[in-house]
Computed example of a mutant assay.
Amino acid sequence: MDLCSKLKVYGLWQLFCILELPLIPVLAVMESYHIRVDKEKLERTSALLGAHLKELEQEAHFVAGEQFLIMSNNQLREILFGKLKLHLLSQKKSLPRTGLREHLSMSEAMLTALQDLHPLPKIILEYRQVRKIKSTFVDGLLACMKKGFISSTWNQTGTVTGRLSAKHP
């Protein structure tokens, strides 16, 4: 009753009745639908992407001339700018820097700007892209599977823009 009173006070009662209430059964039907997924194929895809990540990591170590943690921005920064001095070879006079301690950035924009100077930035860009696909889409979907199916939970009030949002996945 308190919610009803507040909706009426703020002039939202009609919106609630016309838009929000009728959407509830629609969302319930949407949540009841499941997408069948071939778990074995998804697991094989994950393994293939994992193998490709290992190959990219080995290639990065080879072109860098040393081993380093490929996801460590500090170690990558040291190789690109300390060892290879790519910032000195760049045509751009002002390269992007991080807010913290004004280090040269390891962002996609920076690596893209440097990729024609040495093979390592291009390898790192590909590694990040493959890793994102593997972790977000392939492994993420595997984590959301239940009995060979995927279905989402829909949120009617999950965004400030009024759009629907989904979770898991």
Rank of each mutant, 00 (worst) to 15 (best):
I70S: 09
Q67H: 10
M145P: 04
V138R: 02
L19C: 13
L27M: 10
G11P: 06
R36G: 02
T112Q: 12
K132Y: 01
T161S: 15
L117G: 04
L117H: 08
L69M: 05
R97Y: 03
T157R: 15
A64H: 03
Q75N: 05
K8E: 14
S135C: 08
T136L: 06
G148F: 05
T161M: 13
K146V: 02
M1G: 07
E43P: 12
T159A: 15
G158V: 01
M1Y: 15
E102M: 04
L76E: 05
K92T: 10
S151N: 11
H52Q: 11
P96T: 02
K167V: 07
R44Q: 12
Y33L: 09
K54G: 12
Q129I: 00
F16K: 07
S152H: 01
F149I: 06
S32P: 01
T161K: 11
E40Y: 13
M71H: 14
K132S: 13
T161C: 14
V63I: 04
F16Q: 08
K85I: 00
L76R: 10
L56G: 03
D38P: 07
A64I: 02
K134A: 02
L15D: 14
A47M: 14
T157Q: 07
P119W: 02
A109K: 14
R36A: 06
E57T: 07
K41D: 11
P169Y: 07
M30G: 02
K147P: 00
N155K: 13
Y127R: 01
H87M: 08
L117C: 03
L21H: 09
A60W: 01
A143F: 04
S107V: 06
K167N: 11
F16W: 05
K146Y: 00
T112M: 14
S152A: 13
S5C: 10
E59A: 06
H168I: 00
S165R: 07
L23V: 05
D139Y: 00
E126Q: 06
R128L: 05
L23Y: 14
K85H: 15
K54Q: 15
L89E: 10
L142N: 09
K146H: 03
